[in-house]
Design a protein around this nucleic acid. Sequence first.
DNA 1: CCTTGTGAATATGTTCACAGCA
DNA 2: TGCTGTGAACATATTCACAAGG
Lengths: 223, 223
Amino acid sequence: MASERTNHYNPSGAGEIPDIVIGRLPVYLRTLRLLDSQGAEVTSSQELGQLLGISSAQIRKDLSHFGEFGKQGTGYNIAFLCKQLEKILKVDCVWPVVLVGAGYLGHALASYNGFENRGFRIVAVFDNDSAKIGERVGENYVQGVETIPQVVAKYHCQIAILAVPAQNAQAVADQLIETGVRSILCYAPITLNVPQHVRVEYIDPVISFQHMTFYLEKGCIDE
Amino acid sequence: MASERTNHYNPSGAGEIPDIVIGRLPVYLRTLRLLDSQGAEVTSSQELGQLLGISSAQIRKDLSHFGEFGKQGTGYNIAFLCKQLEKILKVDCVWPVVLVGAGYLGHALASYNGFENRGFRIVAVFDNDSAKIGERVGENYVQGVETIPQVVAKYHCQIAILAVPAQNAQAVADQLIETGVRSILCYAPITLNVPQHVRVEYIDPVISFQHMTFYLEKGCIDE
DNA sequence: CCTTGTGAATATGTTCACAGCA
DNA sequence: TGCTGTGAACATATTCACAAGG
């Protein structure tokens, strides 16, 4: 995001699959599942491209990195291609995720019911505010941050969501990484400093807004 | 995403500034403001690159599209560069934003106090659930979606946040565009179909997760 | 010394266009 | 016919490396 970019951990040595290609696969998958839910059985790179606003050649090229999933003259079987993409992305199962931060955003994330069927489950929620401990969020109860190590170890949890204020984000990230987390989705509006083996994705709505305003005619509230 | 990519409205005709460069400016700005708040007065492309995990050459090249902001031997004056970036991105003022969807996510966004000092203010919140109308969210009170046209017109609002369920998102987007909105930040997990003059940025945490799992050793809850 | 700004060189990403097969 | 998969061509983005200035 987005999302921001660059400096992502990409362990796929030298001549491997471009990260930008990997980044498009989840979007393909999301759209294929929509088509599937609408009862479609087959699609083509052209149809998919139209739905996503990208070229059919790009879709074919992207998929060709992983195998030959289509049939000439026919296109792609939707259910089959979904399965393949899920396997490639390793979301043909459910990943445990820990969430740090039980503010409004943490509550929204913990209550979101769209994770499970796309491969993720929030297994624990942490906050450093003792007034919040024991509070219910989604299916979980808020725990103190000091229990992070045990919980991460218990679930072998590799993924964390950071939904804490900017000034705490780096310290919490350090702690998570220390206990074995390797992927962080960071909602705090800062760039984290992490070791090479850790990957961070960022979500900051203001970054998205500021990208959009460049293209707008200035139209502010004051003046 | 993070945001997802491609097919963005870019009115800057032929030989203009690459969109990917524009997308990095908000990140530079965010980091410069952090340095500023820490009392620093001057920085260099090298220091900034280190903080962001990108090359100093890239930062210099990006900035060179817009002018000569630095001093050889010295670097960049932080306050000055912030001002310039804010002007380029047109965030040297406050943009009115409407928010559609008053669920958990809508509440989190409406209560977030990090918008105003970065150039944005949520001026109205809408929902189609009559039970929610009148409810307080942040500084606003939920209104029915039928009042969208008046409110958007009143504020000349060009930016909207879509925080509604996926199945309503396209219809709401159509309505917003009809009333004059030109930029949409979409939290619903679908790709919107919009006319060429409208730009959409997407935020879907699952897309970010699925991008990350490609690089992890499979480690699921079951099996 | 140091650091910027920038052409040239390199690396990466996208599209074209077509052979081959259902 | 209609569509995939793919090298070759093209387009875009990043890095190098250095002249010039404080």
